[in-house]
Design a protein around this nucleic acid. Structure first.
Lengths: 229, 229
DNA sequence: ATATGTGAACCCATTCACAGCG
DNA sequence: CGCTGTGAATGGGTTCACATAT
């Protein structure tokens, strides 16, 4: 009787065999930041409990998350920072880096253009769109602003991995439709509404209004059950 | 023999007896938006499955969440919108509305000032702070900008429920310390770092960089296991 | 001795499914 | 009958605890 595993999966499997939870991906991205900082301050190794302290997580959580990327910790020295950074880059990023588009160059959009100012990271905003004639044609934080009508055209020439929707609520769905038609497979939606998209497209919602309402609620009701706050 | 409940808790208990999860609070805040829209379009009642469709949740989820606010659904007509809005306001908001402070009037800060432009909602930014002399003294979106050094002074005069931290990473912890010292009990942190605060203070982190990294990850890895995306 | 990697236990959020009611 | 309200079951994420390695 065959009780052994049918086909032992290769450890170098390019596609992670199990689905990784959104929470784990978020924490891994944060660990990477912590490691980058430690690295640039001259450290070469780090322990899981050190990462945990900075991120306020537990060491078990950190080790569990790192299992997803294929781990290489050493019981004495902890993790070798440079190697782990390499693993995380490979796990989190597309091979060519992350190419982004931005729709809506209001205050929120400009904040993102500044944050991803071209040059430094492997993530860059390749195209920006707005409907305001006063903005179209200008370069903001080094990024040329195109009219929203040209989304399809521009993204056909320079495809992107992710598009950010930073337009007022009433235009968000229309913009999403155009982006999906242009072949974008992942959206970051900053408008305070939920988008209707085909289920082949990933949507990440960030809703600042709700974040504040939540903060206001817990200002009065204290703890939410966990140790935090 | 006394088998009845010792003291039947009043249904008008101002403090919800059980801790409400952060996810539930976020969804309730979103339901409120949906109800406001339905109300202003003339509807008077709504079914849980209608709310669910708009929010893409399930009807069971909606009903479960609504249990937290003390519910008043009717098996035939569904929920009476005006009444439910009243319940949600009472549950989510402080009696005096939500008073906010903003530290950091960059692009992100200005986006929030615009969003909460004074007048409309029961949530308003009462005070804004920045360290840039070019901004101090000016009024932006109707809000006067004070120097960050005056946080303690200003918040002593006009206390707030929530403070938003929208400053560069390297200043976030210092600003948080000042806000905590000024008596703020709840923070919305938009800086890409985790804050060290006493555990009597609630912190809500919104990290746009990580949100994009997550979107980029699922652009390549498709589904994350649930039906969505 | 101390830290990693991981099965197992635990806990909490969501979903199921059904009683109750108009 | 269809919808609400809710105990019970399910599922997934976190924590525990220990085998293992140095």
């Amino acid at each position: 009787m065959m009780t052994t595993l049918p086909i032992p999966p290769l450890s170098t499997d390019p596609t992670p065999s199990r689905a990784i939870s959104a929470r784990t991906v978020a924490r891994l991205a944060f660990y990477r930041r912590v490691l980058l900082r430690a690295h640039s301050s001259g450290r070469t190794t780090i322990f899981s409990h050190e990462i945990a302290d900075i991120c306020d997580a537990t060491s078990a959580q950190v080790r569990r998350d790192l299992m997803a990327v294929g781990t290489l910790g050493h019981p004495i020295h902890g993790y070798e920072i440079e190697g782990l950074l390499g693993q995380l880059d490979q796990f989190l990023d597309a091979p060519h880096g992350v190419r982004m588009a931005l729709v809506g160059v209001g205050n929120l959009g400009r904040a993102l253009l500044t944050y991803f100012a071209r040059g430094r990271s492997p993530m860059a905003i390749e195209a920006a769109f707005d409907s305001d004639p006063a903005k179209i044609g200008r370069a903001i934080s080094g990024c040329h602003v195109e009219p929203v009508e040209r989304i399809g055209e521009v993204l056909a020439a320079t495809p992107v991995d992710v598009a950010v929707i930073a337009v007022p609520e009433e235009f968000a769905q229309h913009v999403a439709d155009q982006l999906v038609a242009a072949g974008v497979r992942s959206l970051l939606n900053l408008a305070p509404t939920r988008l209707r998209v085909p289920d082949t497209v990933f949507v990440e919602d960030v809703d600042l209004g709700i974040a504040i309402e939540r903060a206001a609620f817990y200002a009065r009701h204290g703890d939410k059950g966990d140790g935090r706050a």
